[in-house]
Design a protein around this nucleic acid. Structure first.
Lengths: 361, 361
DNA sequence: GCACCTATCCAAAGCGCTTTGGGGGCTTGT
DNA sequence: ACAAGCCCCCAAAGCGCTTTGGATAGGTGC
């Protein structure tokens, strides 16, 4: 016997069937053409008729089938997000949640859907070809671009509209992108530490095949170079930004014979590991070791308010999602126009994790 | 004047055009029927012809249009994931990334696509009705069920196949679900602490309108009750599981006149905040304060290997994603069958964050 | 009163696929 | 040699929508 919840009793029967345009128009005694036009805001329909149609549509809970509409119009009203899966740790970048939440807001507002594929690097090309030839999306967002990323020329060749979250150094094509100014952010972070008297400044970075990580290192290096501080390979680490990586790196570097007095770290998550290492070693963050991190403003990892825990270069990845989605939809709606791009400056927020270099206060 | 039609724009070579069945079959000198059958593995096609067709399809990079195929078959070959956005902090649950990575694996293997909507609670019902009437998905995954969750009867009434990640207490309908045994996990965690001599054990829990959080508290309470330890409201917190919440709660409770000697925490993220509080107060985790957390085995937050940092009840949310996706696809493929469900036991991993109660070692 | 608009509405042709209902050839059995 | 039986293949209908190219009716101007 089927149990019935409060309001389901009557709906169970009719519920399985979905009303279509034909039925709706028969119901109204109108042609499909007129009903379609009424609902899509065409002018060839009298106000009275339009109102009747809209009421009936609401009453019968009618909404056009995406598939049929797409087939007829040639649009998918969907955007694909292809999220690369880091093969090494099978890691899904923790920022995707927030980025996608931002993008999703925009899509919802514009009537688009979001299609997600999480794929291994080796399958990337196939996926894009699939998306194109199956025509399941009107465009795609490229996540986590690498240096000389091959996806960009591929998408351009395929003629599938796309927008990149970040940029790809070494790729001189024109395309739609939105990026944080990683270079200047990390230069400023390093400058700030230098100004506090630090000379041995470590960099705990993401994988440097990733474009953002490469740019961050450039910024870091430029800042040190400007003060004639030589780069010390022993103070530079680069890997996937897990908590464990931050811990491990900090632990090793701080335990070495020539430890850094400050650390610049590429991710809040890794920074949590850095803090763990610092405290485990009986040091005090902000006094014995200064830390600057990059903060993507993730919803579950707020870096304090007035007095942030960490000094950080801050840029909301969620906001980036919203913006980039808009840019892509714009590009899709105006195919002729040259691609837009946007470079956002991160703000340097001074928190409690930095202080004068030991012995220089 | 009409602007350049879609395929005449700045057409980079041939790329803009996508081959369709008609062209492919003309190219082969076969009917669409035969080509379609050849590609879909029907037996009415000779091996030789099938091979010819497959080769041509590969050569021309032909793949059937999802829309057209869906329209013809009535299937969407897509699953919807509707992710509720916590209105309070606009927070996207950090476990979604890993869950979705797991589910995505299954979908990819079975030829399904994943459709994501991130929506405010108030729009939930509309979204599900939309998904149903637009027929854009064959089924949906319900995330983050609450107690007496209204989505379950709604989906049942709509006749849209669904699977729930978790369960909804108070909902006595039969439906497909997969859950961790939260109650037993937290009972065991609490038992373990009690066995170590702890009597003042705090609970830092998720929002208790969420079903999982409610069950966890039940487990915690049952364990204490079994030892005649009274519940102390001052030791129980419940909110969204951010790092800040963990910090705040631990800070306040540990700083009170009757502090806990142990803490059970519902999330690794919050636990990082708990650790921060502990260390900031000059206490030592595992000696002054014991901590047990629940570990969803997120890819970027590994809890050590042989000697985990945290004692934890562990259950891979990614594995849950894989499994639940399979169960949903099964339900879709076999509409008549009664719903499956699966209760996974979390394993209790002993780490370095727990030790005998102070003064009882 | 007649030609001419304008305002509304409609029938029918696709969109690209699957699937039904045949229908030619070629092999068998007798 | 003829009918039956297969094996392969095809033409055409249909999925639910949009859109083209009229058609109809009522109002206008002369």
């Amino acid at each position: 016997m089927r149990l019935s919840a409060p309001n389901t009793a009557l709906t169970l029967d009719r519920s399985e069937t979905v009303m279509n345009l034909k039925e709706l128009s028969q119901n109204l005694g109108l042609s499909q053409t007129t009903v379609s036009r009424a609902l899509n805001g065409y002018p060839e329909v009298s106000a009275r008729t339009r109102q009747r149609v809209e009421q009936a549509a609401k009453k019968f809970n009618y909404r056009p089938s995406t598939r049929a509409k797409g087939l007829a119009t040639g649009q998918a009203l969907a955007i694909g997000h292809v999220i690369p899966l880091s093969t090494k740790h099978e890691m899904v970048n923790p920022i995707f949640g927030d980025f996608i939440a931002g993008a999703g807001e925009t899509y919802a507002r514009e009537g688009y859907e979001m299609m997600l594929s999480i794929v291994d690097d080796k399958d990337q090309e196939q996926i894009y070809r699939n998306l194109k030839s199956r025509q399941s999306v009107d465009g795609v967002v490229v996540h986590a671009p690498r240096m000389n990323d091959t996806r960009i020329p591929l998408l351009q060749a395929l003629g599938l509209p796309f927008a990149v979250h970040g940029r790809a150094s070494g790729c001189d094509l024109a395309y739609t992108w939105l990026d944080v100014n990683n270079r200047s952010a990390f230069a400023r972070a390093t400058d700030y530490l230098c100004d506090l008297g630090h000379r041995r400044i470590a960099l705990i970075n993401g994988l440097e095949v990733m474009d953002f990580a490469h740019r961050r290192r450039m910024g870091y290096a430029a800042s040190l170079a400007a003060r004639d501080i030589a780069l010390d390979p022993a103070l530079m680490r680069s890997d996937e930004m897990t908590e464990g990586f931050g811990y491990q790196s900090a632990r090793e570097m701080l335990g070495s014979s020539a430890p850094p007095t400050a650390i610049v770290c590429s991710s809040m998550i890794s920074t949590l590991g850095v803090r763990r290492a610092i405290e485990e070693m009986g040091l005090k963050m902000g006094r014995d070791v200064s830390v600057v991190t990059h903060d993507d403003a993730l919803s579950y990892l707020q870096n304090g308010g007035d007095k942030p825990i960490f000094t950080a270069t801050r840029s909301s990845v969620r906001h980036a999602g919203r913006r980039l989605a808009k840019m892509l939809l714009h590009a899709i709606a105006h195919p002729g126009q040259p691609p837009q791009s946007e470079l956002m400056e991160a703000e340097l927020m001074i928190g409690r994790s930095t202080g004068p270099a030991p012995g220089k206060g």
